[in-house]
Design a protein around this nucleic acid. Structure first.
Length: 266
DNA sequence: CCATATGTTACTCG
DNA sequence: ACGAGTAACATATG
């Protein structure tokens, strides 16, 4: 469920509920979620800490602790964070639970178990590998364009690469390329500077609208709060709302890729 | 049984 | 070194 807008939505939802609270206990229901350390060690690292700050970068949520370390959460495909009363019965797919002062807890729910809830001494370990976000106010178009010029990769996988551009996932890349009228298979070094600029403007526009709508409702259950309606993603076979021709679907880097073959030419 | 799914990483091969 | 393709992680749904 989560690309940047959904992660932003989750972050905003939990921030005010857990900020300033003290972690009084931790419970691990799926070991791999905490990234390969023992439950005992994890508990030692987090227990007794106050939550100083909660923020998002790309698709990661950082929960800063009074120790100076952070819990770094990635929702991957099916993760979600909830705050509930401790007495509320636990969910079937609960993977990690932090008991907080004040009678509530922070729950990491993750059906597919791909998500991670990892203790990092330094946030930089994670931050260092991330490119800029399209919505950064100081986004440097020139260096983005230079990066594209140096690569023969297809533009779609390029935009999904979080070290090139951070925050976009399959849905919003598809929306971005449609808006910018760029074919998903176009080699990155074939793009003009104008097209590179349009891609960033489109991505920023799509992300901002999706954040305002609190994410996308995929209709299949997991993510129900969002109201963003994709214009191309999941619409193969239906008419393009810009030109009326049929949206087609191909596979690119193992991912379903909807696009308009008339609007988006190679 | 098969294919699909919002993400990422590790591996192979040319 | 680069980049495309594949498998893997693990579960649910059609």
């Amino acid at each position: 469920m989560p690309e940047l807008p959904e992660v932003e939505t989750v972050t905003r939802r939990i921030e005010k509920l857990i900020l300033g609270k003290k972690i009084e206990a931790s419970e691990i229901y799926w070991k791999r979620t905490i990234g390969g350390i023992s439950e005992k060690r994890f508990d030692k690292l987090v227990n007794g800490n106050k939550i100083e700050k909660v923020w998002r970068r790309a698709k990661y949520i950082f929960i800063q602790l009074s120790s100076g370390a952070s819990l770094v959460v990635h929702l991957r495909m099916s993760g979600d964070l909830l705050v509930k009363r401790v007495s509320t019965p636990i969910e079937k797919h609960l993977r990690v639970r932090l008991i907080l002062s004040g009678g509530k807890d922070l729950r990491f729910i993750d059906t597919r178990k791909f998500g991670r809830f990892v203790h990092h001494q330094h946030e930089s370990e994670v931050l260092n590998r991330l490119g800029p976000e399209p919505i950064d106010s100081d986004f440097d178009i020139e260096s983005f364009y230079q990066k594209l010029k140096k690569s023969r990769r297809m533009i779609k996988p390029m935009l999904l690469d979080q070290s090139v551009l951070a925050g976009l996932g399959n849905i919003y890349v598809i929306e971005t390329l449609w808006k910018a009228k760029v074919h998903p298979l176009l080699p990155a070094n074939k793009l003009t500077r104008k097209q590179a600029e349009l891609i960033i403007l489109s991505a920023a526009n799509v992300l901002k609208k999706a954040i305002a709508a609190r994410g996308t409702d995929l209709g299949d259950g997991v993510w129900k709060t969002g109201a963003f309606i994709p214009k191309v993603y999941g619409r193969s076979g239906e008419p393009c709302i810009r030109c009326g021709s049929k949206i087609v679907k191909i596979k690119v880097a193992q991912r379903g890729t909807d696009y308009c073959s008339v609007c988006q030419q190679l």
